[in-house]
């Protein structure tokens, strides 16, 4: 787990006192995991963007009205809001189309260009898109645990409580999720330890 110089609790305290900069740090710190949680459920970029905003409308309202009481567990709390909103939308609409480019690839926004070349960045993006596909293909119970533990940062005990299973079952589902992803990667010849060149 990454450690930050200023913890979430401190940032929330500052935000409650009116420090909007503290809120900006919180949003930027956790936007990736929260957005990924939403996207993996709705599988639609534009809807995910809307739900991301809707999630934070609730967050802002809850904190600024003094009703936030989960200090130290900001990300799991926000992720649960995002998760519930995404599930609600998914249930209402049943199904959303996946947005694809003309070349058949998914639209992925906000690519964080670094010093890497466009080509190497594109290779990594392709790999990431494949992995996202593997996650989507997992059995529901396995994908749920993976999303809750890795992106929503809930503990295995919290996942067990939330899904009504034992902690060993939650751990087992996570283990099988990883094993299944690993198998799919092997089938696609995706290597870990050098550059990622899928065949």
């Amino acid at each position: 787990m990454r450690k930050y110089a200023i913890g979430d609790s401190e940032l929330i305290s500052q935000y409650k006192k009116g420090n909007e900069g503290a809120f900006a740090i919180l949003v930027n710190r956790h936007k990736k995991r929260i957005y990924t949680t939403i996207y993996m459920i709705v599988k639609d970029q534009y809807l995910a963007e809307d739900l991301m905003q809707e999630t934070f409308v609730k967050v802002v309202h809850t904190i600024k009205s003094g009703r936030y009481n989960e200090e130290g567990k900001f990300l799991p709390w926000v992720s649960r809001i995002a998760h519930n909103l995404a599930i609600d939308h998914f249930r209402k609409a049943k199904r959303y189309p996946t947005i694809v480019m003309e070349d058949g690839s998914n639209i992925f926004n906000s690519i964080e260009f670094s010093e890497d070349s466009y080509e190497s960045h594109q290779i990594q993006e392709d790999i990431n898109a494949l992995l996202r596909g593997f996650i989507k293909e997992l059995p529901d119970a396995q994908r749920e645990v993976l999303m809750m533990r890795h992106y929503m940062q809930m503990s295995f005990q919290e996942i067990a409580d939330a899904t009504g299973v034992s902690i060993n079952t939650a751990l087992g589902r996570m283990r099988y999720a990883l094993i299944n992803i690993r198998k799919k990667m092997e089938q696609k010849n995706i290597a870990y330890d050098q550059n990622f060149y899928p065949k």
Binding site: F23, V27, A48, V57, V60, N109, D193
Partner: peptide, 25 residues
């Protein structure tokens, strides 16, 4: 290694969305 790879899989929302959230706040 798989968990490290899963970290890279995450996607970012657009800056427009982030800005909208901050403006709302």
């Amino acid at each position: 290694e798989l968990l490290e790879q899963l970290d890279l899989v995450g996607m970012n929302p657009s800056q427009k969305t982030v800005d909208a959230i901050l403006t709302y706040s």
